[in-house]
């Protein structure tokens, strides 16, 4: 299982990386390589040139400001795991990315790599969609911003042009007191989820939900926002009957794929099950505290 013959370049800047992409048709970006290397090993892709952005300092780091949280494309899962301030600022990001892959992969795998790879069952694309993130895309004409829902076009397909690369994303600020939860079901720890559901919403003084966001992974050709479910919940008090009817709506509004691990019918039912579970958890969130899962130093 050896890679096809390829050339390798390590540009010193984003601009140089884009020039390299422009110079060789079919060239691909590599950073952590945790999604790309298996593809190359199976020879499902044979790019003539790999452009390694793995040492570009501008793509590192996170920035938490009142207007949102900016993550560089090279932020790794292990960094999110260790960053207590980030975990407080973006609890859903923290909770969802805790499910990504395994220890060794988490030490190299990057936020940008996962987004650009665009597996519909991956957590990070799900975070982006569920949180209305803005993706920052660098190309020959400079940086353009793309809304997360517009970024993903299909399984392993994004709007990124051949000569563009993702340099980072910005998550909107997370208002205090927000109710949220994420659950996914995978056959084993670290596997791609058969399905996953994230919710977050605010609650007004009367206990009514507002600003409801419902996201699903592994439930369609891209990570999904379940707008119909959001509309169903918006402005209403969350109770058992509403959760139950919204769960049915959630199942009806996804379009999962069949594969050898699970068929569409199972995945659809799983979305309903997980939706019920995250709603119950979100409702009971306050007793759990706001910090989400533990930080590993």
């Amino acid at each position: 299982m050896k890679l096809s013959r390829l050339e390798y370049a390590r540009p010193a800047s984003v601009a140089e990386a884009i020039e390299l992409l422009q110079g060789t048709e079919g060239a691909k970006i590599i950073a952590g390589g945790q999604s790309l290397m298996p593809v190359l090993a199976f020879r499902l892709a044979a790019p003539p040139l790999l452009v390694d952005i793995g040492r570009l300092e501008d793509l590192r780091g996170t920035e938490i400001t009142p207007v949102g949280t900016r993550l560089g494309a090279r932020v790794r899962w292990c960094e999110i795991e260790r960053d207590a301030a980030l975990r407080r600022a973006q609890p859903l990001l923290a909770a969802m990315t805790d499910h990504v892959a395994h220890y060794q992969v988490r030490n190299r795998g990057t936020v940008g790599g996962s987004l650009a790879h665009a597996d519909p069952a991956a957590e990070m694309p799900g975070v982006a969609v569920a949180c209305d993130a803005i993706m920052h895309v660098a190309g020959p004409a400079g940086i353009r911003d793309v809304k997360s829902e517009d970024f993903f076009e299909g399984p392993l397909q994004t709007v990124l042009a051949e000569d563009e690369l993702l340099v980072g994303l910005t998550l909107p600020p997370w208002p205090p007191g927000r109710r949220w939860a994420f659950e996914e079901f995978a056959l084993r720890r670290g596997d791609f989820a058969l399905a996953g559901v994230a919710v977050h919403y605010g609650r007004d003084a009367e206990g009514r939900a507002h600003g409801v966001r419902v996201g699903a992974i592994g439930a369609g050709e891209t990570p999904l926002r379940l707008h119909a479910v959001e509309a169903e919940l918006e402005g209403r008090k969350i109770g058992e009957a509403l959760i139950s009817s919204a769960a049915k709506l959630a199942a009806a509004s996804v379009d999962p794929m069949n594969d050898l691990h699970a068929d569409a019918e199972y995945r659809r039912a799983l979305v309903a099950t997980l939706f019920e579970r995250v709603m119950l958890r979100a409702e009971h969130r306050q007793e759990e505290g706001e910090n989400g899962p533990a930080v590993h130093p």
Binding site: L187, R188, H261
Partner: peptide, 14 residues
Amino acid sequence: SASFADYLMPLATD
């Protein structure tokens, strides 16, 4: 099932 992503053997967590 011709990869380890598809042939699922027990992990330490199972």
